[in-house]
Design a protein around this nucleic acid. Structure first.
Lengths: 336, 336
DNA sequence: GCGTTTTCTGCAATCGATTGCAAAATTGAT
DNA sequence: ATCAATTTTGCAATCGATTGCAGAAAACGC
């Protein structure tokens, strides 16, 4: 049985018969404290189940030891709650931050005005901010970045952009995906996704580039503008197939979208990949378990999280870091 | 252009030419402050983009205004990072807490010793704790609950259990799922999941009960003990099919598992649902988008999150709340 | 105009830690 | 035993807010 737990450092000091300074130093392993008292105090602390009050400690030290991770639920879909891609990244971020002794404050925001980010940065609740996805908030991000250094964003590194964005090279990813379908002899390739979103726009650009490289004329009518995070891929693809039965490949902007497309194809009696090849994007955990398993473009989120956190800590230390776009990777499975 | 921002309440007081007490009260809308100075100070605060330091405020008020949400990565799978089920619940929790003005501290823990929960509760960093999933940590949860009131757990409400658990009635869910297959005339029904985990054990009990009700003899060999959160459902099912080609139904312990099973069936040339019906569990977001779409047992996580948070706040206010098991729901789609 | 209420504002203690500086205790040399 | 050098400990200020209590200012009555 452990003794009743103790409220604060002063209580412990009283029990130990020393001053609070001594206790504080002992617990911090300060060399100013003799080996003997240090172990004695450590012993007492353990015995009474004492832990420092982190709030007080952080106030004194002028830090919070916490990082905000923000999911802005912009324009499109106040409901991509469950996008497995985002959630996987979140898991990796939690690990990376925990490893460095930081707490992760999860914040979901529906940007009503353009002050949501300011409120967070000056609240003093966190030492830094990671925003997942630029959504339609690039202006806000740029403005805040000019004034608040410890801010990094998962997303597309656009030209002239003021904030530090880290992500995969979406253009290259789109190109990889499309080139793979082309290499299989596919020629009527649709793009499933809305290029208005920054990341998707870049993937679409890659798609166009690959077609051009192969000497295939891009057909604007083969674009299916699916809202990001929407679950409408199935319906969209089904209707599209009626109008364009000639397609033999689909480049989807996400694995979730690819899944919807596969179901639509399957119900229309078009075999995947024999009749129509489908390639996804992200390589989310379930991508390996669809029927057929998804060929897709992998974004290494473990690496992404590591880069985000590393950049953030550099920024917390005072150095502005550049944006990073690292290479995505083609994962071959059965759908294309 | 806004004026340069101001560090603390004292600065603002100096600018306003009043004491910090007055500023503090004005910002808190205290009736002790005259209308005139109150608006004047509010104006100044806005103008200078001033916000109270939450850390200091919380220290003074003896609270943190933050709730820890813990994902214990127990025995099985240090890798259910991405389980869409957990992540969906997390999203709802974030909303429910934000709504009440609380921050959500996300913590992933691999329970190495039996102190992980104590460390959290006495660190003073949070006002309450929500643990997602009991994993193999029921003893720790019970012990902590005896001493620390503001703790609620998503999971199975077992008998004699000391902590407050909230979740769906897993036994009923297992029974619903199995009864549905039986009602279609299926008789050789396998169970895919590991009954050793509390929730799955209850679902398995429901499965057995439904079989008994229908007068069907339960066949122990039809149990596929899949680790929770594992991605081995595909391989397990494939191997199982070779040994038991006679089965005509599978009750899966999760949608992720069901998806793996469907792929295995599909590759073995057994049509779903014609030859073998498959029913999932959870109704995760992608369940509607598999091929074929999953018939499954829905756990209403929006409601679950609401119940968790409501119970937690009651407990923070001092009243012990009972465990809750609410009813799951059969969702009919195409796989069974 | 003067005393009494009522309204408004400020002083100073407090939350629970950390840390510079000075004082006390210990050690060592002679 | 004495004094200097060194080690160990404690005092008190500080981080940025909140709040009980007392004092100043304004309003009121006669």
């Amino acid at each position: 049985m452990t003794a009743p737990s103790i409220g604060n450092l002063a209580d412990l000091a009283r029990i130990a018969g020393v001053s609070t300074s001594t206790v504080s130093r002992a617990l911090a392993d300060s060399p100013l404290i003799s080996e003997k008292t240090r172990t004695r105090i450590a012993e007492l602390a353990r015995e009474h189940g004492f832990q420092l009050n982190q709030v007080a400690r952080n106030l004194r030290l002028g830090r919070t030891q916490a990082i905000a991770v923000v999911l802005p639920l912009g324009d499109e879909s106040a409901q991509h709650v469950s996008d497995p891609f985002i959630m996987t990244l979140l898991g990796f971020l939690a690990d990376a931050l925990t490893e460095r002794g930081y707490d992760l404050l999860l914040t979901r925001i529906v940007p009503a005005d353009d002050k949501w980010l300011d409120r967070l940065t000056i609240s003093g609740r966190v030492d830094g901010v990671i925003v997942i996805g630029q959504s339609d908030q690039r202006a806000v991000l740029d403005r805040t970045a000019a004034r608040y250094l410890p801010l990094v964003v998962w997303g597309e590194a656009g030209i002239g952009q003021q904030h530090c964005a880290i992500g995969t090279d979406n253009r290259e990813g789109g190109q990889l995906a499309t080139a793979h379908l082309l290499s299989q002899g596919r020629r009527r390739i649709a793009f499933l996704g809305n290029p208005a979103a920054p990341e998707i726009g870049a993937r679409h650009a890659g798609y166009l580039a690959a077609l051009a490289d192969a000497g295939v004329t891009a057909e604007p009518s083969l674009l299916l503008p699916l809202q990001l995070g929407s679950e409408a891929a199935f319906g969209l693809t089904r209707d599209f197939l009626a109008a364009h039965p000639e397609i033999d490949g689909i480049v989807a902007a996400s694995d979730v979208a690819a899944m919807g497309a596969i179901r639509a194809l399957s119900e229309a009696g078009r075999a995947v990949p024999e009749a129509v090849a489908v390639i996804g994007y992200d390589d989310v955990p379930f991508a390996a378990h669809t029927t057929p398993p998804l060929t897709t473009i992998r974004q290494d989120l473990g690496k992404g999280a590591e880069l985000l956190v590393a950049a953030l800590f550099e920024r917390m230390a005072g150095t502005a870091t550049p944006s990073v776009a690292f290479a995505p990777e083609l994962v071959l499975r059965a759908s294309a």
